[in-house]
């Protein structure tokens, strides 16, 4: 069970959160202008990286808010969490080390 730092509430156990998939995939402003190819990519294609992953979480059993996180998918350590709507921090994997040890 991970410890996740909600940007609004602080560190809390994973059970209070719901995972929300990859972050920074904005819904197109006008989907009707997209080709099937582009729409299919928006719906389904995911980075799924081995390494730092920008992802969404919702503090569903806390403040209820969605926020974003950078997590190393090899170690499951977080490099950063940040409010929804803010850009991905310029953190590399070395940031991840800090949160573990």
């Amino acid at each position: 069970m991970l410890i996740i730092t909600c940007p609004h509430c602080g560190p809390r156990p994973e059970l209070e959160f719901r995972y929300g998939g990859e972050a920074h995939i904005a819904r197109p402003a006008d989907p009707s202008t997209l080709t099937d190819e582009e729409w299919g990519a928006f719906l389904y294609q995911r980075a799924n990286p081995r390494g730092l992953h920008a992802e969404r979480w919702r503090h569903v059993a806390g403040c209820g808010r969605f926020f974003n996180a950078l997590r190393d998918t090899q170690s499951d350590f977080f490099a950063a969490t940040y409010p929804a709507g803010t850009p991905r921090p310029d953190t590399d994997a070395s940031g991840v080390k800090e949160s573990g040890r």
Partner: peptide
């Protein structure tokens, strides 16, 4: 619940 390559879970 989350994607991971860590080969372990909670």
């Amino acid at each position: 619940a989350y994607t991971s390559y860590s080969q372990r879970g909670g």
